[in-house]
């Protein structure tokens, strides 16, 4: 049973990393970023490629993936999203387009070998990451088997969630992001450069997605469409937790992670997914703005 709780915690941790970025970006910019999952995928490929070509391990791949995905996010914001502010459906379609573009670009370069097809110049099979030895050998604690890699994922998520909280609630840049989330016009009238802060927010959210990708590369097959499912799960967390709510994202990812883990333990993954969707539907019917949203006069 403790194993199940632990698996739920690690699932929730990856969900949290994906959802944090989505939540901040949607909350401050009103952009539903359909390419967020592909940024997770790019993060995972960064881990794979850096291991092969730069001979660096998973620990070093974390900051590298953050920087690469943040840079890519900055580029997407400047080239696409900035031109489509306040046009929800247009940004949705445009970011979906970006998602397909990224997915196909990666599939062209690295993806064919997954199907056993090897074409010269299109790259070798690059679908797995070797987890450092210190994270791969289970530790026995009485009857409980502690999986170091899952523990590592949980710790990284806690550290990044705490850092994000600090950034958002204890720094002037975080105050600007929160002000834009609540009232963009008034934020600008108070001297906040909304475009610049939005670009930085998007880059930070993309960087978090990259870290989530590195984390996933250690226990999931790295493939071009691995991010598509993640973006759906991430949005479930955002919707349940409440848009822009850090606490909401933490609670929702914990609840959904545990729910998936427990239902899968007693039945299977498919039923677990169905149950998660049913619970999410019930929650949004009961609280359309999520479990945690702000109130005021």
């Amino acid at each position: 049973m403790l194993d199940t709780v632990f698996i739920g915690l690690s699932l929730g941790s990856v969900l949290l990393l994906v959802a944090l970025g989505l939540s901040i970006v949607y909350g401050s910019m009103g952009v539903i970023n359909m390419a967020h999952g592909e940024l997770v995928m790019i993060g995972a490929y960064t881990a794979v490629l850096s291991q092969i070509y730069l001979d660096i391990n998973l620990f070093a791949a974390i900051p590298l993936a953050f920087v690469i995905c943040a840079g890519l996010g900055l580029l997407i914001e400047k080239l696409v999203i900035r031109r489509l502010y306040n046009r929800l459906f247009d940004t949705l379609l445009a970011t979906w387009g970006v998602a397909i573009l990224l997915q196909q670009a990666i599939r062209l370069e690295f993806g064919l070998s997954f199907f056993g097809i090897h074409v010269d110049g299109l790259g070798p099979g690059l679908q797995s990451v070797t987890v450092p030895k210190v994270l791969s050998e289970p530790i026995m604690l009485g009857d409980f088997v502690l999986q170091p890699y899952r523990t590592f994922i949980i710790l990284i998520s806690i550290v990044l969630a705490a850092f994000t909280w600090f950034l958002m609630y204890r720094t002037r840049i975080g105050q600007q992001v929160r002000a834009i989330m609540r009232n963009k016009e008034m934020a600008a009238a108070c001297g906040i450069d909304v475009k610049k802060i939005n670009a930085l927010t998007f880059a930070y959210g993309s960087g978090l997605a990259g870290v989530a990708g590195v984390m996933m590369s250690g226990f999931k097959t790295v493939m071009p469409d691995m991010g598509s499912a993640m973006v759906v799960d991430g949005f479930l967390v955002v919707v349940v937790g409440g848009v822009g709510s850090l606490v909401g994202s933490i609670v929702a990812s914990g609840v959904l992670g545990q729910l998936t883990s427990f239902v899968a333990f007693f039945s299977n993954d498919i039923i677990a997914r169905a149950v998660v969707f049913a619970v999410v539907i019930c929650i949004i019917v009961w609280r359309p703005r999520g479990l945690f949203n702000y109130k005021g006069r």
Partner: peptide, 13 residues
């Protein structure tokens, strides 16, 4: 901003 403290609201300026 309703969920900002009075101080945070002032310092926004």
């Amino acid at each position: 901003i309703p969920d900002f403290s009075v101080k945070e609201n002032i310092l926004m300026g």
